[in-house]
Amino acid sequence: MTTLLRRSQLSRRHIALGAEFEQIGDTLLVSNYGSSEEIAQAKSLALIDLSTLPRTGFKGAGATTWATSQGVKIPERPNLALLQKDQSLVVRLSYHELLILSNIDPLSTQIERLDSMAVGPQTYTLPRADSHCWLAVTGSQAAEMFSKVCGVDLRPHKFANNAVAQTSVAKASAIVVRHDLGTTHCFYVLTDVSAAEFLWDCLIDAMLEYDGGPVGVASMRELAAEG
């Protein structure tokens, strides 16, 4: 295996924005872009790249049975997410498909464990860490901003915490998961990794009107701690 630290498809965008990176596990994430206002920004409207964080997926008729046998708590129906003991988030995409997203701090232990073991019958792994990029949109104006790029009503009183929408964001197929950071609204957006830069640019453009912009994971950590 190469020992390269994993970089995001968006790393050139981050470098151009003056990002300061931090190492988490064997990956690099943007810690901040050098602004002292990033926490306030994240509370108002911000975009965060989480693409290099661990995640995995399991699919197939036996997937939920197998995952349950491995101690994974399964959301009760499709298009719901459920927080796990190790702070990872299990997103149920259909009757037979799970997506598991790591927490930042601490990194989820469950994902690496599940990935390293032999799966059960009628269960198949999905390379979710490579197939999708993972962005987070945070802040009180997040839903308003989304209404410029997404046809699903994501307003907080209509789209509850841990709700999931498989839909189109800026005409790219996407998985949208609401997973608040403490009291701050937060929406994860996962879309085809090859469209990462396209989506990033669309979201930055849509945010301008609300003075939104990119922030690093340092502010995300702060917000989670505040809750």
Binding site: G151, V152, Q166, S168
Partner: peptide
Amino acid sequence: PLNGPRNISEF
């Protein structure tokens, strides 16, 4: 049946 009511452009 899986995702609920959506704009027809999603189909």
